[in-house]
Design a binder for these strands. Structure first.
Lengths: 210, 210
DNA sequence: CCGCTATTTAATCATTTGATTAAAATAACT
DNA sequence: AGTTATTTTAATCAAATGATTAAATAGCGG
């Protein structure tokens, strides 16, 4: 089998080339619309190689999905659980991180959300979603804020919906937004940069609104 | 051809049955993942009928897409252009309308956004997106608000991103939200009902935030 | 009832597409 | 160089799938 890695001293392994290609194509077209041949072409390899390295389209997809998912939620996990930063700082950091991430990879959220709908339970529970938020240091700070009267008492999931909605949605709906606002790609990116500082202010105004 | 409708005195026309079925299946699975056979089965008709009434899968899809799109933006158009309602009232009405619409049809936004990415230009320009917002009565009110100092001076597209983000995104990302917040379907719907009154308040707080 | 048209069906095609296989090429190692 | 293991290729398969065709059925005016 493929135990020996010393073969490819040059460049990247064929396996990695395939994974990178698969990532690009899957992200852009989703599972059903991508042909294994598309991936092979993108990777510059023969179709059979794909089935040689990964047993099937499904298997390859699962790997890409898993990694994309982890990549996406890694930042969320880390920031929410940092016990050295304030609530305000967490908001700023999250917004900044995600706007940067999505400006560079605008296809990821729609990809994830689509494929999550295909089988919600498996991936959601596997990622330990519940723990990410509800058992985070952030939640403690949020509750504290409520107790002290600094934060209006509402379900923290509303907060996440607002933060993610304002941050992520514009990327998902970018064609609509560009259409509505008559924006060029450059205009759009500029607006998103502005939002790095705007969204935290808006969120903080919300937190105090009762 | 199919000029005579007197045949089907009962129930709905076969053509309508197919369209309804297509709408359901396309909304749920998207273009690539739906098989024409799925639609035929859902409609309770023979596969060949689908190609008899609509010449191809593409043609049928284009019709469904067109109607879904119009259905979705109808409310937006009307509300934004109503010259008898206040800014605040428009916000409330939009949030209420869309939360009701999406509670009943949660699959629509992801469907639209997916297929919009497949060919943005055609549909966006066809819908007259630019006019919907930038030439609306709403925009005049928004500018007025800025002049009077009641509204902070930022690009109104930010406002749309926030409104739609906070309203629509939770439905698109419902599996994630349910996971993060450990919510049952019922819990989720209850939260969304709460948001009908929360979002307008948050938006108004944002409008004043500078 | 007859003849005509619209509708519906069953059977079949042609293409696409995921997967496999056997052979060739390449690298690794002695 | 010779031998073995690994990687890559070309050719092919089988199933899925969109589409077509020709025949059957049903409604309707005369």
């Amino acid at each position: 089998m493929k135990t020996n890695k010393t073969k490819h001293i040059n460049d990247t392994t064929t396996e990695v080339k395939i994974k990178n290609a698969a990532s690009i194509v899957f992200h852009k077209k989703g599972f059903s619309a991508t042909r294994t041949r598309d991936i092979a072409e993108e990777a510059g390899i023969n179709l059979a190689l794909l089935n040689y390295y990964f047993r099937s389209k499904e298997k390859l997809f699962d790997i890409i999905m898993q990694e994309s998912m982890q990549g996406f939620f890694k930042s969320l996990k880390e920031v929410l659980n940092n016990d050295k930063t304030s609530l305000e700082n967490k908001i700023e950091t999250l917004v900044n991180n995600y706007i940067d991430l999505l400006t560079a990879n605008p296809d990821i959220p729609l990809f994830l959300l689509n494929e999550l709908r295909r089988n919600p339970d498996k991936l959601i529970s596997k990622m330990g979603m519940k723990e990410i938020l509800m058992e985070s240091y952030f939640i403690k700070q949020f509750q504290q804020g409520i107790k002290k009267g600094m934060v209006a008492p509402f379900n923290p999931i509303h907060f996440m919906m607002n933060l993610m909605g304002m941050t992520i949605f514009p990327f998902i709906a970018s064609p609509v937004m560009k259409g509505l606002g008559d924006l060029s790609d450059k205009n759009f990116d500029e607006l998103m940069m502005q939002r790095k500082s705007l969204i935290p202010k808006w969120i903080e105004a919300q937190l105090k609104t009762k």
